[in-house]
Each structure stands twice: as structure tokens, then as C-alpha cells.
Nucleic acid binder design. Structure first.
Length: 486
RNA sequence: GGCGACAUAGCCAAGUGGUAAGGCAGAGGUCUGCAAAACCUCCAUUCUCCGGUUCAAAUCCGGAUGUCGCCUCCA
């Protein structure tokens, strides 16, 4: 497959170091608050990459860390009067709740920063020994950026231009404004660990270098994260790891684009900030996941509830087709009658196109376009009395079901029982619209009674009444069903 | 100021040299007691603008305009 490599600024054929095996490291969360939609996007993107690589038959080691000691965690702990470790544990728990709802598979390894202090001390010592880092009198250790030639190669920055913007904060003992902390000397009341330079705690960038090296042989095949992490975080990881080991750190750098609100970055200060919980209070998790996949992973993605609602309609149409296929497959007495070969050919083409889209830099948006080809094909066969009752039709339905099973496993959607999902989706929509299902059911019962008596005036009057509640009634041979209108 | 990304129909969006996927919305039709859903048909001679390269460009190059991101913690 082809993947866009930030390091080379172009798509490249992805080839792992060891045939058949892939090592992938993705920067995880800092556990100090609930996750927002941006975390959801990043998680979904790399979950799909993980699933797709496995689908292709690779033995994937997926490492995703937890930053469980950090300024923000300490700050939060201070605010609520808890220990930093308690805060980290709490929000790691909340993280899993969100991830599970979004059907994010667990990575192979999920190392925590605080469980790898010895590895970080070792790496820091190596960097000091090789002249790439220095300790200060107050017990900080800094990485000497100018000692590493490749600095800036990932983010395309020039070290002298960076220099002009950088400055030394009061209290810092850096030799150069560009230098960054590997180890921070302990401050009173903060969590700290013993080190050769006195008690302290690791700097943020250090953990990813130390833990990736521990769980995968360098170079990593893939290193991923949000676009904003490329500088300085990923740049610093490269500097640390390559300066210490002399080996390249990662072959492919994959960065997902940002979630925006009204074309602007979301941030707490702008007040345009949504947590995953905020969304899932109104929409099903699969709707959010589907929505996130309707755009290419590197593009900025504009979030709005209107856009989510639009995505929801698309997802509903897909599931409606799957439900119809299930209904037909539950029937028996298949007839021997001719089945048009061009329908099979179109389905073949859709399956092939889906695969091509995924091969081309994980183009889930393009791939979903081909999913709708299968949806239309299913509808066409269901429409035709002869086709849907034929043996060829049955085989076609089975093929469609298989295709969706495979696509669903890759994308992490389409995996619910269709009829049950549609009911759940309808109830979710009804709840948003403030529709009381019991009221609807009783009106429908009254309407059925009227229809039974051929009292169509009354039947239509009730339909109008339901429509005023934003409810559409659908009469089927099995009785009346309903959905939220629009 | 430096670095970078993006600009495709009413809206969202895929598409990196060969003559514009898909979704949502909309119009007409089939079906239906009426509807809804589904299906069929239609809906960008054109890809922000101006130049250039080429037999051929939304796709490559140069310029303009606009939007956004990074350069400080951030997915």
C-alpha cells in the first residue's frame, strides 16, 4: 500500500523492515481530562490503519502510550486535591470507556510513562555520555539540539530560524534556547523519582523514545500522531533516539489532520470544544465513527452537528440495505432463473475499488463511495421480484453480506445486526427530536385500526398528526413501522 | 516574520497528466388506498483567478487572491 510519509512529504510504497511484520508507534493521550473529538479522530484513523495492516496479513505490533505524568496532570491534581497518579488513572479509565464505545481495538502494547523511568534514565545517560545532553546544577537535564545534525528534518524547519523565535524562560539553565528538557529536577510537592542528577521527573518527549525502543526494534516502520505533534514533539523524539542509537528512528511518519469547528481549530478558549461524551449524548458511536471516515485522514475535518446528521442519514441508508438483504436471505424456495452477470461484475468492481482506495494512503472517503455502489446493487436486486427470489439473487445477497463483513472489519463499522441497529438509530433520532415513542406507537395503533376499517380519512388524519410530530409512518406487509422524518 | 496545508456542484466530499466517484439536499417517474422507504432518470462542458509546460491538466510549473494550521501545552 501507499502511505503519505511526512518525513519525505510524499506518498511512498509502504514496506516494513521485516517482511510480514509491522511495528507501529502512535502517541497516546496525556491523561488529565476527557477526550475530545480530535482524540476520537486520531484514534479512529490509527485504529483503521491497525485493522487494515492486519487485514493485509501483517503481524502488527501496535504501541500506544499513556502519558501519566506531566505538568497538566499535576496542575489538574492540584486543582481537585488529588494525587497526580489518581488523576492519570481516572482519565485512563474514562479514555477506555470512550474508545470502547467507538470500537477502537486495543493496541498490542500500552505502556505508561511512569512504568518506564529506568529506561528513560538509561537513555538520558546515554545522551549525556555521547555529548548530546547535559545536566544543570539544579538537576535538570537538557538535550543539546545543536549537537544533532538532522534537527528539523521532519517539520522542515531551519535551526537558525527556530533560534530566533526561541528564548530561555526565567529559571531555566539552558545553554541554548533551542534545548529541551529530558529530565526535570523535582519541585516541592510534585511527584519525583530518583536519578543520577537528583530527584525529578521525565520530560514529555523522552517517554516516546524510550518506550518505542523498548517494545520495537528501531527503526519503527510507522510512527503516528496528530499533525500538531510533528513539531516539536516528534522532532525531539527523532533527535533523542537517533542521537542515542545512531539508527534512524522511524521510516514512515503518519500524521492525521485536525478537527475544526467552523473552519477553526477547536480549543477550550474559543468555546468551540466538544468531548466525545458531548457527541455520544446525542448520536450513536458508529455515526461518529462513520462521519470521521467520510473524510481523508490528512484533511482538516470541519465538525458540526448538521454534518453529523447528514452522515447519519448515509449510514442509515447503508444499514437499511443490509437489513433488506437479511430479510431476503431469511426466505426460502429459491427459484432457478437467470441472473444478470453485469450485476456480479459491478459488485466485483466495487470490491476491487474499495481495496484500491484503501491501498492508496488509506482513502476511507473514497472507499465509502464504493460501499454505496454495493448499497445500490442490493436495492436493485431487492426491487426485482424475479431476481430477489432466484438462486442467483440469493448468492448475490450472500456476496454482498460477505463484502460488508470484510469492509466492516477494516473500518470498524457495519458490524451490528442491521434491524437492531436501525431501531437503535431511530430511537436516538427520536430522542434528539424530543419524540415520545409511546405516543407514536399509540397513534400508529389507532391508525392501523382505522385502516383495517378502510376509514382512510381518519387514517390520513392520524398520518398528518404524526407528521406534525416529525414522524414518518411506513406501511409494510408486516405492519407499520416509523422513523423520524427528514 | 518563518515553515506548511488547502481552495472541486446548494452543502459535504473523492479524485496527482487522459477528459469530473460518492453522500446529503432538490426535480421528475415507478411502487403505494395515501404516504414513507427503495428503485429508475436528472442535477459541475467544469474544478478560486491569471499565465505557462503538454497532443492532453482539477491534476505539473510560476504568479495572484482567499482560508486554515504549526512556529508555546495540544490529537
Amino acid at each position: 500500500m501507499r502511505l503519505y510519509n511526512t518525513l519525505k512529504r510524499k506518498k511512498q510504497e509502504f514496506v516494513p523492515q521485516t517482511p510480514g511484520k509491522v511495528n507501529m508507534y502512535v502517541c497516546g493521550i496525556t491523561a488529565y481530562d476527557l477526550c475530545h473529538i480530535g482524540h476520537a479522530r486520531s484514534s479512529v484513523v490509527f485504529d483503521v490503519l491497525f485493522r487494515y495492516l492486519k487485514h493485509k496479513g501483517f503481524d502488527v505490533t501496535f504501541i500506544r502510550n499513556f502519558t501519566d505524568i506531566d505538568d497538566k496532570i499535576i496542575k489538574r491534581a492540584g486543582e481537585v486535591g488529588k494525587e497526580a497518579a489518581e488523576i492519570a488513572e481516572q482519565f485512563i479509565g474514562e479514555f477506555y470507556v470512550d474508545m470502547d464505545r467507538l470500537a477502537i481495538e486495543r493496541p498490542t502494547v500500552e505502556p505508561k510513562c511512569t512504568a518506564h523511568i529506568p529506561e528513560m534514565l538509561k537513555l538520558t545517560q546515554e545522551l549525556i555520555d555521547k555529548g548530546h545532553a547535559y545536566a544543570t546544577p539544579s538537576g535538570d537535564v537538557y538535550f543539546k539540539v545543536r549537537s544533532f545534525d538532522g534537527y528539523g528534518k521532519l517539520s522542515g524547519r531551519n535551526i537558525d530560524e527556530l533560534e530566533s523565535g526561541a528564548r530561555i524562560e526565567p529559571g531555566e539553565e539552558k545553554q541554548d534556547p533551542l534545548d529541551f528538557a529530558l529530565w526535570k529536577g523535582a519541585k516541592p510537592g510534585e511527584p519525583s523519582w530518583e536519578s543520577p542528577w537528583g530527584r525529578g521527573r521525565p520530560g514529555w518527549h523522552l517517554e516516546c523514545s524510550a518506550m518505542s525502543e523498548k517494545y520495537a526494534p528501531l527503526p519503527l516502520d510507522i510512527h503516528g500522531g496528530g499533525q500538531d505533534l510533528s513539531f516539536p514533539h516528534h522532532e525531539n523524539e527523532i533527535a533523542q533516539s537517533e542521537a542515542a542509537t545512531g539508527k534512524p528512528f522511524a521510516n514512515f511518519w503518519v500524521h492525521n489532520g485536525f478537527v475544526q469547528i467552523n473552519s477553526e481549530k477547536m480549543s477550550k478558549s474559543l468555546g468551540n470544544f466538544f468531548t466525545i461524551r458531548d457527541i455520544l449524548a446525542k448520536f450513536l458511536p458508529e455515526t461518529l465513527r462513520y462521519f470521521l471516515l467520510t473524510m481523508h485522514y490528512r484533511s482538516p475535518l470541519d465538525f458540526s452537528f448538521d454534518a453529523l446528521e447528514e452522515a447519519e442519514k448515509g449510514l442509515r441508508r447503508i444499514y437499511a440495505a443490509l437489513a433488506q438483504v437479511e430479510t431476503e436471505l431469511a426466505k426460502e424456495n429459491w427459484k432457478k432463473s437467470p441472473f444478470p452477470a453485469e450485476l456480479d461484475a459491478e459488485l466485483d468492481a466495487a470490491v476491487a475499488s474499495f481495496a484500491e482506495a484503501m491501498e492508496d494512503d488509506l482513502n476511507t472517503a473514497g472507499a465509502l463511495g464504493h460501499v454505496f455502489t454495493a448499497v445500490r446493487l442490493a436495492g436493485r436486486v431487492c426491487e426485482d421480484k424475479n431476481l430477489r427470489k432466484s438462486e442467483g439473487g440469493r448468492d448475490f445477497f450472500l456476496r454482498i453480506r460477505d463484502a460488508f463483513k470484510q469492509w466492516g472489519a477494516i473500518l470498524g463499522i457495519f458490524e451490528h445486526a442491521p434491524a437492531a441497529f436501525l431501531t437503535e438509530l431511530r430511537d436516538s433520532r427520536a430522542a434528539r427530536a424530543g419524540i415520545d415513542p409511546a405516543t407514536v406507537e399509540s397513534l400508529i395503533a389507532a391508525r392501523q385500526e382505522a385502516r383495517k376499517n378502510k376509514d382512510f380519512a381518519r387514517s390520513d388524519a392520524i398520518r398528518d398528526e404524526l407528521l406534525a410530530l416529525h414522524v414518518d409512518v411506513k406501511d409494510t406487509p408486516q405492519g407499520a413501522t416509523w422513523d423520524v422524518a427528514g
